[in-house]
């Protein structure tokens, strides 16, 4: 049995609704969750658990596009990715450029960082009007 002194408490802000409950997660030295406090609904408890053990984010950014209506093409990962990979994904996408026309859903980077997740175009990007 561990005493309270061995517990490490981490705080989170619940994003489930505008109440913004302040959540606390106690973890024992073995890395197991001992207690979750501060939630006022089931959503909050699930969020704290997930955020503590496997935080994920939907990554959206832009890549360069040549010959398009705009200079940048918005793209997004097809699934939420581990939060700690965010900067690696962003840094990689910063080096990517495509050529118009592009269709929404076109794969810009397949299996990014060796994962199963693709990065796809968030919109059609028509070629710029040559007369313009």
């Amino acid at each position: 049995m561990s005493t309270d002194n061995d517990l490490q408490t981490t705080q989170y802000l619940c994003i489930g609704c505008p109440l913004g409950c302040r959540l606390e997660v106690d973890e024992d030295p073995a890395g197991d969750i001992v207690e979750i406090r501060g939630f006022s609904c089931r959503k909050g408890k699930t969020f704290a658990e997930r955020e503590h053990t496997d935080p994920r984010r939907m990554i959206t950014t832009t890549v360069g596009v040549t010959g398009g209506l705009w200079a940048r093409l918005p793209v997004h990962a097809t699934e939420e990715m581990p939060k700690h990979q965010m900067w690696d994904v962003i840094d990689l996408l910063r080096t990517v450029s495509v050529t118009a026309p592009v269709a929404m859903g076109d794969v810009v980077v397949a299996g990014i960082l060796g994962s199963e997740v693709d990065v796809v175009a968030s919109r059609d990007m028509p070629a710029a009007d040559p007369a313009a």
Partner: peptide, 9 residues
């Protein structure tokens, strides 16, 4: 959940 450009398109 969609991105803004997807919602518009």
């Amino acid at each position: 959940e969609l991105t803004g450009p997807e919602y518009a398109q």
